[in-house]
Amino acid sequence: MPTTRADQHRFRLPTLTGALRLLPWLVVGLLIFAAIAAPLIAPYDPIKNVGSPMLAPFSPGHPFGTDGFGRDQFSRILHGLGPMMFVSVGAVALAVAVGGAVGLISGVMGGWLDWMIMRAVDILMSFPLILAAILVLVALGASTFNLMLAVAISQIPIFARLTRALAAGEVVRDYVMAARASGFGMLHVMVSEVAPNILRPLLVQATSVVAVAALTAAALSYLGMGARPPEPDLGYMVKEGQELIFIAPEQTILPGLVIAIFVLAISFCGDQLNEREGG
């Protein structure tokens, strides 16, 4: 009968898929560890020519070979992880903070203010995002921090709209009505009543957006608008390596692969959080 099949299911799935479900978290953990420990575990200085020939092939001394300046590619990729995470996580955090605040005000206050804010968000959304980011980077100059800012700015309208939708859903609930009826001010309603209740779904969404932010940042670096050389930056390494595809294709393939692995792991983590939130 069906019960036995369901029991079998329950018995088998947790072990197999459970392990698989753990994998993305492990990968993210490993990458974070590698990023933090990069100065300790990287065999060489990522910026200095290590006295090896340019474009040396893979070897035990240089697991990923050397780049066009004779720098150790493995060390450069390790040191490039930190900036990638700083930019993508930092940008989303900033976008959640600013977009969240704007969306919260819009959703809770309602009325003409809500209408104005949402129309402003509509206008910003119709502005090509990558162009907005490029304008910011050209104005501020290329650096890792400015790259983070540029990506954040391009994500703010998305979070404003999302937060507004979540907040508007909460405002009509009984507990908010009760709070307002008991004479609490709007600020109190926003910060103490609505915000805590929408924080969870917002953060779950934010996890998924980290993946998008990492890709956007990498694309801007590829266009030469991110980190300033010789600082290691994975997107810029793809750009630097691409003219060498005849000679040393790994120069462009490896850094891109690392970006893809990070984004993949983050996306799976975000999915799992989403599923738990939804179900």
Binding site: A211, A218, A219, V238, I253, S267
Partner: peptide, 16 residues
């Protein structure tokens, strides 16, 4: 998810 995670510019170069 894998396809989504590939940086466009990089995927383009790999396809080339």
């Amino acid at each position: 998810v894998l396809l989504f995670s590939l940086p466009w510019f990089w995927f383009g170069i790999v396809l080339i």
